[in-house]
Design a protein around this nucleic acid. Structure first.
Lengths: 354, 354
DNA sequence: TTGAAAGCGCTACCAT
DNA sequence: ATGGTAGCGCTTTCAA
């Protein structure tokens, strides 16, 4: 009873074993899978169906990749731990876009975190053939490992010299949003900012000017500059003590920051929020404090996630094409030579909160 | 100028090359990375720092895995295309939980779609050492490929003979939800169901009894049975023409199904929805039709996603621990021998819509 | 504590 | 159209 039954082989199948059983050479089996033009259609068909019957699923990817030096896998390096990205609406929309394109192309994607520690034991970064890097990795030294691989790279939401970059018009969108809000306010302040990862530390609360990240590497900083320029156009300013930082774009961080911001004196008449999640949280805090929106407080978000459209009141926000960004990043990384670095437009969507 | 500079080598580094440059054997380098106890601490340290300097990131995973037969990667097989899962709140929460545990363990995860077509070219399924299978794959034949691998498998939200399974008490939760709603209604119907993937086809709308999937393989079907049993307890029934199917748990499908359901005659007094997304959409349709919730229409959801808590009115729904489910699935797959199959509790959260 | 060497499964070149 | 075969980079005995 220990022997193989007719159709359910127990032993691990290899190309060589199959070749032996079918009485052909290993090269022929390999060709059947990889180069249909190298053998007669009938033989190929026969081989393929026999493999199916024997339970051979095709060449072992490790061996193949050792031999060819390629895996066909696309790496998506995320700025932080993976868990964070599954919590963030914008990130999941981006990944949705990426996976749509890759799925259609039957290409697999490997998600990699942007933390150094992850790579100490293994050198996973060498598995993919090409990379999408979504946001500047938390530990930028991992970029160095990547560069060493000499593989095609597309960066998203930041730039890396010598590589294709896909960005969004953060400055333009943020400026529109702030300008609109200020106009609604009749040019009167004070206004405050609920920022997102404006500084390197994970402190939630007021920031200090000298902690601010560089605009080159931080889209948040770009948005902040836009807010400030818009304010300046109205003769206002947004000093550091009117800026509250959050670490994650989530409900808890948003509530904490908004609560602080709305209990400051004088109380802000507008809150410029760097994500819809943060705006949504601010809206809730305002309601809890019985502050009328938009009459007593204007709120603008960023991203234009579905929730912004469904809340009460609906959130005025800056649309950015997250899904499209993902699709495009995937297309760019698959055919780098057909694309150039690009900045996608953003667009102010005026709704009820500002 | 074509020669290597002191610190930025251009050539692809291999273990062998490094061994040569350092004047030790390949085995020693390998040991430095994999078996610290096989050489002196000082030598190991020296080797590691030299590798760093030379730009050698550690053993090539393909070669290592070819040799050892293991990769250390955990596969997460999803029921559908990847893109779908990034769109679904429940799935992303699950993935969040999985990735938390895997990240902490410095283990990589490979997402694989549950569609046959994906595997025709490559046999990606052989890369991971162990598998989490989240929901019954759309093409169940891919399970066969998996089984052949003889690797540890944990199934989530369905069962596979001979493997660890992690489920949630769908029946209990749904029954509580339906019973509560019926009580609110004073035992009066009619009631309707907005189901999720109750049938194999992607039809959105009314279903027929004989299309229903088997409860063994469909959590939706389990929920449906619970709804029906609860109805029977009140002397009511839920015939097939009172059940509307959706294909995805999203806004568009939900709106379409709810619109149909709410224009049926007689109009349902309660909508039992198989996800919060669907309930949210139903709520919107009710508002559009000027139907008062909960006075004229009661709505219950399933999952208890954050949005259910934030809507107006807030959604009465069944909580299921999605993140925890992900964490546990990851822990189970990493140490199968320490766990048994399990059913996690669900819990009715009564809020404003029912 | 270190080194020599076999071989993991496959592909691609070169023969036939 | 098909077959023979070297070698991809590594780990792991075994011997020194």
């Amino acid at each position: 009873m220990n022997k193989n039954s007719k159709k359910a082989p127990k032993k691990r199948m290899t190309l060589k074993a199959v070749a032996q059983m079918l009485g052909v050479s290993t090269a022929t089996i390999s060709n059947a899978f990889n180069r249909p033009d190298q053998l007669s259609a009938s033989l190929r068909e026969h081989i393929l169906s026999e493999c199916e019957r024997l339970g051979y699923n095709g060449p072992n990817p490790a061996a193949r990749s050792l031999r060819t030096g390629a895996t066909g896998i696309v790496g998506v390096m995320l700025a932080e731990r993976l868990a964070y990205n599954f919590r963030d609406g914008c990130a999941t929309e981006f990944l949705q876009g990426v996976s749509e394109v890759l799925d259609d192309a039957r290409i697999n994607m490997l998600l990699l975190p942007g933390r150094e520690e992850f790579y100490h034991q293994h050198s996973m970064e060498s598995i993919p053939d090409r990379y999408i890097v979504y946001g500047p990795p938390r530990d930028i030294d991992v970029i160095e490992r990547l560069e060493r691989q000499q593989k095609p790279v597309v960066t998203v939401d930041f730039n890396l010299p010598g590589h294709l970059a896909l960005n969004v018009d953060n400055y333009g969108g943020a400026k529109q949003a702030a300008t609109h809000t200020l106009k609604q306010l009749g040019g009167e302040g004070p206004i405050a900012v609920i920022g997102l990862r404006l500084i390197h530390s994970d402190h939630i609360g007021r920031i200090q000017e000298d902690q601010l990240l560089d605009p080159d590497v931080s889209i948040s900083r770009q948005r902040l500059e836009a807010y400030r320029d818009a304010a300046a156009d109205s003769g206002l300013s947004i000093p550091a003590d009117r800026i509250w930082n959050t670490h994650e774009s989530n409900w808890a961080d948003g509530v904490k920051a908004a609560r602080e911001a709305l209990s400051a004196t004088p109380r802000p008449k507008a809150l410029l929020c760097m994500s819809d999640q943060l705006a949504l949280a601010a809206l809730r805090v305002a309601r809890d404090l019985s502050i009328q929106v938009p009459e007593q407080l204007r709120i603008v978000g960023f991203d234009d996630t579905p929730e912004a459209r469904r809340s009460h009141p609906t959130i005025t926000t800056v649309y950015q094409p997250s899904i499209e960004k993902g699709r495009l990043a995937a297309m760019m990384v698959l055919n780098p030579e057909r694309y150039q670095s690009r900045v996608l437009p953003t667009q102010l969507h005026i709704r009820e909160t500002a």
